[in-house]
Structures are given as structure tokens and as C-alpha cells.
Amino acid sequence: MVDVTLWGGLVPLADDQKTLSIEADTIRELLRKLQERYPALSGPIKNEVAVVIDGVIYRNDWSQRIPEGAEVFLMRRLAGG
């Protein structure tokens, strides 16, 4: 089970919950289950999300494994210069 923290903009799309518990081994599974539970998250997940696992930011690698007890955040994808 993973506790995932959402950034503020996503909270209203997930029944106003800031932290959710999801059973997931990879980022892909996490995002799929989040969308199944909260369909309103589908839009942001498609284009706007980066996933932070234990402080490392993943923008694309949805195959990344989530270790047991890892700290997981959903962050907005960042702009860069």
C-alpha cells in the first residue's frame, strides 16, 4: 500500500482528499488506479503530472517501481528554461 500526496490543484478532483492510500507496485499502476477511483483526475494525469518517489522526480518513466513504504507525491510537471 502506498500513501500518495496530491498537489493542491488535484485535491478538489479527488473528493477533497490530500493523501490517498493505493495498492500499487509501479507508477503506471498507481496512476491507473487513481483514475479508476477518481475519473476527474484523468485529464491532469494525462498531461500535467510528475511523480516524486523518495525525493526523485519522474516525468515520464511510468514503469518505475515504487518501493514498499516509499514517500510518493504527485507534482505538476515543471517548465524549464
Binding site: 500526496t5 516524486v52 514517500e71
Partner: peptide, 9 residues
């Protein structure tokens, strides 16, 4: 714990 959320490695 960073000011933007995640814990630093």
C-alpha cells in the same frame, strides 16, 4: 522535508 513537499535524498 522540502518546502514543496517531498523528502530530499
Amino acid at each position: 522535508k522540502s518546502s514543496y513537499g517531498p523528502v530530499y535524498g
